[in-house]
Design a protein around this nucleic acid. Sequence first.
DNA 1: GTAGGGTTAG
Length: 541
Amino acid sequence: MMLPSEKHLKGSLHFVPRTLPSTPSRGRAAEQTCLALLQACTSLRHLLQTTALLLKYGLQSNPLVLTKFAAASSALDALEVATSLLFSPHASTHLYDCFLFNTVIRSHAQSDRLGDRRLAISYFSAMLRCRLLPNKFTFPFLLKACASLPEPTGVGAQVHGCVVKYGYSSDPYVQNTLIHMYSGAPSGLDFARELFDRMPKTSPVTWSVMIGGYVRSGFSNKAVGLFREMQGRGIQADEITVILVLSACADLGALELVRWLGSYVERENIPKALPLCNALLDALAKCGDVDGAVALFEQMHAKSIVSWTSVIDGLALHGRGKEAVRVFEMMKGAGVVPDGVAFISVLTACCHSGMVDEGRRYFHSMTSDFGIEPQIEHYGCMVDLFSRVGMIERALEFVKTMPIEPSPVIWRMLIGACRVHGRLELGERIAKNLLDEDPTHDSTYVGLSNLYALRRQWEKKWETRRAMSERGIRKVPGCSLVELNGEIYEFVAGDESQLQYRGVYEMLEEIGRKIKLTGYLPTKTEVLLDIDEEDKEDALH
DNA sequence: GTAGGGTTAG
């Protein structure tokens, strides 16, 4: 959607007032005409023409017209047009009402542009400056805008203060959006839980908001725990709760629970709409039941690009690159136009199966055939593609010539590749550069110290570890999750607090022995390097 | 005119 140029806009605003009659017609006929025109606006041009007309009739201060106007411009994704009229020098702010501001705040809160969402909060301030009282609809809109900011709890807490001040803290809609807003930031999660626990009356929405907060913050295990509590209290989950828990399962690899949720949906007659099927499909695929996912995909009567992408991604993730590429081609054959996410999946497939040429072809096709501008994720896939097969120079060259700033993730991928393919000096150089720019990320230190370990430069290795701890940075320990009889167990590396840890490690060693007996050979590059036995064992585990 | 939702490089 083309946005109107400033010039165009100012033109329409400044031209019309000069032609206004000395006593502007405020008749009902003009008002009705403009309302009808605004209702029917389908293009930006149309909207600008209507703008000119309503200015001509002096309706720029008519609250009814303005509200409709705000709604029409937000439907056309032209928020600038709305606000330049509402807050133009010709506007008579004393005629504004709460409804008008709610419309403007809502349309800005729903925008996918960050700047617009920030503006929603400014309009709330403007509303208070106009001495207007917010009503019960104002806060859910406003909190939604706060929730989608990068740091929601800062300004969100101020809005919370207003919620209390204006007496809406016991409105269930407001309470649910408050929990949603706080749970959007890791630092606000505990407070969100406090609010949740204090809710006198909960609905499936309340539970979904809290479960969704855990999922978004990466605490999928807690999300599942809360869902169990919900079940225990006999609260009926709805479609959205199930979707959220499924995405937690996809994260945890909890296949048994995914299947249980599938039968729960059947048993409770929860409508199997497309988003639910997609969530189930994705969870099955991510948890390793790719064939189950494909079977579900085939019996789904409605499929969206998300369904296709989940299947492609599932195949790619489990090393079935050739099939993934085939499904991608089938998708195009079925007339579904791939989007940026679908290309990430097919590029992932090429990565995981070493299909360098195919990957390059798809990367090229993305822009030349579909006009999709590659994002950092796509460049990341290409770097990974070259890195994995040992084309380190090509990967580096690619990073140096790509038109957007390489992210730390990309540099860390290269460091990993340097380690695997024995390019230790290069890896060291990249790691040091990266540490100069961002000394706070644990895995960069770990990557560098691993490079030194492989080169048997113990002194430098310890130096790196020391630098890390001096800056107060600690390695986040790795962990695995095992699902057994519907229960999810979490194992954290090096954690000896667990009651049965001795047994766990003994079992690990036994598994290691058995794997070797069946003919497992460790990766050659790791073994060819001159490292000591203990590190070798560590690396292999 | 109000709240929660699906696929995204390692």
